[in-house]
Lab assay of single mutants.
Amino acid sequence: DLSGKLIIKAQLGEDIRRIPIHNEDITYDELVLMMQRVFRGKLLSNDEVTIKYKDEDGDLITIFDSSDLSFAIQCSRILKLTLFVNG
Rank of each mutant, 00 (worst) to 15 (best):
S3K: 12
K9T: 15
D65M: 00
A72P: 02
T62E: 15
K5W: 05
K80Y: 08
I61N: 14
L79P: 07
R40E: 14
S67L: 08
S3F: 06
I61V: 12
D1Q: 02
D59Y: 13
G41T: 07
G4N: 13
L81I: 07
H22N: 11
D15Y: 13
L81H: 01
G41P: 08
K5S: 10
K54Q: 15
T27M: 03
R17Y: 08
Y53M: 06
Q74D: 06
D65N: 12
E24N: 10
F71Q: 10
D55E: 08
I8H: 01
L6M: 14
K42F: 03
G4I: 12
V32Q: 10
L44W: 06
R77I: 03
G87Q: 14
L81T: 02
S70Y: 05
K80G: 11
N46T: 12
T27L: 02
K80S: 15
Y53T: 04
R18I: 13
A72R: 10
S67V: 13
T27F: 00
K5R: 06
I78N: 14
F39H: 01
F84I: 08
D25Y: 07
R17W: 02
R40G: 12
L12Y: 06
L79W: 03
I78S: 10
G58S: 04
T62F: 00
S76R: 12
E24R: 05
K9F: 15
I19E: 03
F71P: 02
L81G: 01
S45C: 07
Y53H: 04
S76K: 13
A72L: 09
L83S: 00
S3Q: 09
T50M: 03
I63R: 00
I78F: 14
D59E: 14
D15A: 14
L79G: 07
R77L: 04
D25I: 13
R40Q: 13
L31I: 04
I51V: 11
L79K: 13
I73T: 04
Q74P: 03
K54D: 06
S66L: 01
I73D: 02
D59I: 11
Q11I: 09
S45V: 10
I61M: 11
I26Q: 01
Q11H: 07
V32F: 07
D65P: 02
K9V: 15
L33A: 08
K42A: 06
D29Y: 05
Y53A: 05
K52N: 04
R40K: 12
K5N: 13
G87K: 13
S3P: 05
I21K: 02
Q11S: 06
S70G: 10
N86C: 08
R77T: 11
V85W: 02
S45Y: 08
T82S: 12
I8D: 02
L83P: 01
I73Y: 02
I8Y: 01
L44H: 09
M35R: 01
E14I: 11
G4Q: 13
D65S: 12
R18P: 15
L79I: 08
Q36P: 04
R18E: 15
L81V: 05
V85G: 04
R77P: 11
C75D: 06
K9N: 15
R40N: 13
I8G: 01
L69G: 00
N23Y: 05
H22L: 10
L83C: 04
D57S: 15
I8L: 05
L6R: 10
S45R: 12
S76T: 06
D29S: 09
V85Q: 07
V32W: 06
G41D: 13
K80P: 15
I73R: 05
I8R: 00
G41S: 08
I63L: 11
A72C: 07
D55K: 15
G41V: 04
R77S: 08
K52F: 04
I63E: 01
I7C: 13
F84V: 14
E14D: 09
K54G: 05
R17K: 15
G87R: 10
I19Q: 01
K5E: 14
C75M: 15
I8F: 03
T62Q: 13
T27C: 05
T62I: 02
T62K: 13
F64G: 06
N86D: 14
D55M: 06
E24Y: 07
I63N: 00
K42L: 07
H22R: 09
K9D: 15
A10M: 05
K9L: 15
E56D: 12
I51R: 00
F39N: 01
M34F: 06
H22C: 12
N46Q: 09
K52T: 12
I26N: 01
V38T: 11
Q36Y: 10
S70L: 11
N23E: 06
R77C: 06
